[in-house]
Design a protein around this nucleic acid. Structure first.
Lengths: 132, 132
DNA sequence: TTGCTTTTACGAAATCATTCGTACATCTTT
DNA sequence: AAAGATGTACGAATGATTTCGTAAAAGCAA
């Protein structure tokens, strides 16, 4: 919950992989990373680039690592939801001048949200309204 | 609607001012900018810094400018909602692995949204559900 | 053991964003 | 007209991020 240093784009990409796959070696992250990049026609990067960024992330405290074996194993330092929450706050401020409501309206209007998901959101709203 | 080059943080800050105030001179933007920065205890910047960034924005096509008088007047090249939509798409992909629903749930759960705004969102959801 | 592969570490280049100094043009005031 | 204020243009310094080459250590295979 303590404010996390803001991850850069490359760092966030790696955090996503670690959240999705759990603690991983640099090799495993690197392969996932380039797979995702290929799927989005972006440039692949070299192995030592991925390694370097993960080392920087460890320095910054974005990830922890187990160095007890030769192949170090990296894990995220913060929960996905906590990090998302902080990034969301910054994004709302920077892009929607602080209005979470505008962001939600835009997201609902133009992004892909299924009928079931809409129901879930409605249920959450009703729960929130009761709490007030 | 054509994909806009991704604005940097400094550029987005200036876009916000232009959206809020309409076409403006560098001087006017600069004053708004430093006022906002002061209010958030961030560093103020020099006039030529603001000028330079706005010139770069014109080069990139983020803004247009009227140079027919000595004091150039800058205006945003894209509508606020269109730009927000594109930034939102990128943000959802980068931070919520593409799940707009997760983003909305997080935003509703932890950001400040008033009861009236919740009602508005609920109304939008019901409208969307009818359309399906 | 000797050579091949995998891994980490480190440093430096390349790239991108931000900042500002300086120069020069134009307008305003006296 | 001269002085001062305000404006644009441009280039370069600074700082942050990303990229990768090279080296050394550790493990593996013949």
């Amino acid at each position: 919950m303590n404010p996390i240093p803001k991850p850069t784009e490359a760092e966030l990409e790696i955090l996503q992989i670690l959240w999705a796959h759990g603690p991983s070696s640099v090799r495993a992250v690197h392969e996932q990373l380039n797979e995702a990049r290929l799927a989005n026609n972006r440039e692949e990067v070299g192995y030592t680039t991925t390694l370097k960024i993960m080392q920087i992330m460890a320095d910054k405290g974005l990830v922890t690592r187990d160095t007890s074996t030769r192949t170090h194993i990296y894990a995220t330092a913060a929960k996905e939801e906590d990090t998302q929450q902080q990034l969301l706050q910054r994004f709302v401020d920077a892009t929607f001048r602080g209005s979470a409501m505008k962001l939600v309206m835009q997201a609902l209007g133009n992004q892909q949200v299924s009928a079931e998901e809409l129901d879930e959101i409605k249920a959450l709203i009703e729960k929130l309204e009761k709490e007030q």
